[in-house]
Amino acid sequence: MADETGGSYVEQGKSFDRDMNYIPDRIVREPVEGSDPPQWPVEPGRYRLVAAKACPWANRAIIVRQLLGLEDVISLGLAGPTHDQRSWTFDLDEGDVDPVLGIERLQQAYFERYPDYPRGITVPAIVDVPTGQVVTNDFPWITHDLFFEWTEHHRADAPDLWPAEVRDEMEEVMQRVFTEVNNGVYRCGFAGTQEAYDEAYDRLWTAMDWLEDRLADRRYLMGSTITEADIRLFTTLARFDAVYHGHFKCNRQKLTELPHLWGYARDLFQQPGFGENTDFAQIKAHYYVVHTDVNPSGIVPQGPDESVWLTPHDRERLG
């Protein structure tokens, strides 16, 4: 069975290895005909971002779309938090059908373009509304291109999510966050041996300690302003105590016990675009119901208390 990004669940005797082969097409301002991978034109109103608030990888795209003010340019379809082996479904919509695409399963948009699509049906995905075909599900490039290629459609005061002066270092930070934290929690949760788990656990907490130290004297990962790096880390931190601490056995400490990371996470949560797109009920439903090999009972925990996310963080003092 595939997870939200196509990786497999627990395989006995093996370490977790995420499948990173996605549909590589990109949507760009000046597409080159015959390019490999194919390029599609930036065109307001043409595309629909299909995402799920339950999924950390899709949650990034939802946040970036709102921060950049692209709500009226790229429509948003939201899948429900649980799915079967076939596909994410639109059970949040009336009649269980996406009102724009007219489909019950995201799988239908994939098959419309690739009738024998062999990989997991993942979110986020961008769908070409006129044809009903999936364009891309390459999640790192989706948010990258929303910033760089859709610039003329950003709202006037949109944040600079990729500041030129720190971009090289930011790429290094994001790579470490991805491999060691975003993917690191999955490496713990889906480990198939004790040895694989122990190694994954040590790697995760080495990175968490690095982040705790980094955020001791700077408000955000790259300084005093929010960047793409923060969005990528936030969606993992938002799920840490609710899911990863127990469900994925990442239990050395809770996020609330890490003073700098916890203050940083609350700071982001309380910013426009972050907390309002974080749905803890959907997050817990996804992990605890879908991951039957990790949680065979399907019982969804009631806690933790969500109100703590709105407590003061005092991060403004860092600039």
Rank of each mutant, 00 (worst) to 15 (best):
N182A: 05
D230H: 04
F240A: 11
E228C: 02
F248W: 04
E228V: 02
W210L: 09
R187K: 14
L255H: 14
R203V: 11
A216W: 12
T235A: 09
R187Y: 05
C188H: 07
T206L: 11
W210M: 06
E212P: 15
N182V: 08
Y220K: 02
R214K: 15
I231Q: 01
Y244N: 13
L204S: 03
V243T: 10
F234W: 12
A229T: 03
R187N: 11
G184N: 04
Y244E: 05
G223L: 00
R219K: 04
E212D: 10
R218P: 06
K249M: 09
L211N: 13
E212S: 13
Y201W: 05
D241R: 03
F240M: 08
D202P: 06
A238K: 04
T227L: 01
K249Y: 08
H245K: 11
A229G: 07
L237S: 15
R187V: 03
K254Y: 07
M222A: 09
Q194A: 13
D209Q: 14
R214E: 10
D198E: 12
G192M: 02
N182D: 02
F240E: 00
A229C: 01
R203M: 15
H245D: 07
M208T: 15
H245R: 11
K254F: 06
Y244Q: 09
G223P: 12
Y201H: 05
M208Y: 10
F248N: 12
A242C: 10
T235N: 11
T235R: 01
R219I: 03
A196D: 04
T225K: 15
F248Q: 13
E199Y: 09
A196F: 08
H247V: 02
W210G: 07
N183M: 11
E212W: 08
L255A: 08
D202W: 02
T235F: 01
E228T: 02
G184Q: 00
E257F: 04
F190L: 04
Y186P: 07
M222I: 00
W210Q: 10
V181H: 13
A229Y: 06
D202G: 14
H247W: 07
E195L: 14
